[in-house]
């Protein structure tokens, strides 16, 4: 009978010994609560697998009337492999929380979540998409920056000037999924290789078939598919929790 008594004792001792003491976390206590999260900057960035995105992700906590809330707790989460630094934060005087995002080891489209809770403790979320370009899409991005972006990207910088605004026929942004998703891979290949007239489109789009290798043309198409918004379905990959 005595023996039976010490068994629960041993089990309890074992339990105490094995209990995984939670790592001491920096205590973050929300001093305020908002009711909506909006993205300030840092969404839709193009990063590389396993690499920190060039710009931090900044989200803003607003109350019901749209004013910034200071001191609200925002927690970030994402699919496997994504790391946030910091993973949670309190909104600053502008209602903003900033975090550095390191992408997971696989290329593709990543859906990240920022979460906060309102006064009643009910959680509300903001979904942010970030892109991670593996080798082929990275090559596509580089080809795009050298040849395509002069016309297809309306944003202009001192290093890479855009002529978008000056063109009589406006080219489509590569992110314009509503239009470009309707083109099959072979349509895009025909336009890039033989120029706009190949599909009865503007001659302002020159043929690149004698300049780019087949692999590079494929890379540009893969890049277009990666950045397309809404996502390109047949090959578009979504990693979500």
């Amino acid at each position: 009978m005595k023996r039976i008594l010490w068994i629960p004792g041993m089990v309890a001792l074992l339990g105490v010994g094995c209990a995984h003491r939670a790592a001491p976390t920096l205590a973050l206590h929300a001093t305020a609560a908002g009711s909506a999260l909006v993205e300030s900057s840092g969404g839709k960035q193009l990063g590389m697998p396993g690499t920190m995105l060039p710009q931090p992700l900044v989200v803003q906590v607003n109350d019901a009337s749209g004013n910034a809330v200071t001191g609200a707790l925002v927690e970030f989460s994402g699919p496997e492999g994504v790391r946030f630094d910091p993973a949670a934060g309190l909104s600053d005087s502008n209602g903003q929380v900033s975090t550095n995002v390191t992408m997971g080891g696989i290329g593709g489209r990543y859906e990240l979540t920022a979460a906060s809770s309102d006064k009643s403790g009910k959680q509300f979320f903001l979904k942010v998409t970030e892109l991670s370009a593996p080798y082929q899409q990275q090559v596509g991005y580089e080809v795009n920056e050298k040849y395509c972006a002069h016309c297809h990207n309306s944003e202009s910088s001192a290093e890479r000037v855009s002529n978008y605004d000056n063109l009589a026929v406006k080219p489509h942004s590569f992110a314009d999924g509503n239009v470009l998703n309707k083109f099959s891979d072979s349509d895009l290949n025909a336009i890039i290789t033989h120029g706009g007239p190949a599909l009865n489109r503007s001659a302002l789009m020159p043929p690149y078939g004698w300049t780019l290798s087949k692999a590079k043309t494929q890379a540009v198409i893969a890049y277009i598919r990666l950045v397309s918004d809404p996502p390109y379905q047949p090959a578009g990959v979504t990693y979500a929790k």
């Binding site: 590389m48 697998p49 396993g50 690499t51 390191t102 080798y135 082929q136 990275q138 090559v139 580089e142």
Partner: peptide, 23 residues
């Protein structure tokens, strides 16, 4: 090798600047 350093492996054979390996 962690994914973020994977481009290093290209550099074992390719000794000049290479497309697709900006890092």
């Amino acid at each position: 090798l962690p994914a973020r350093y994977i481009e290093s492996s290209c550099g074992q054979c390719h000794h000049s600047a290479l497309e697709g390996t900006p890092k």
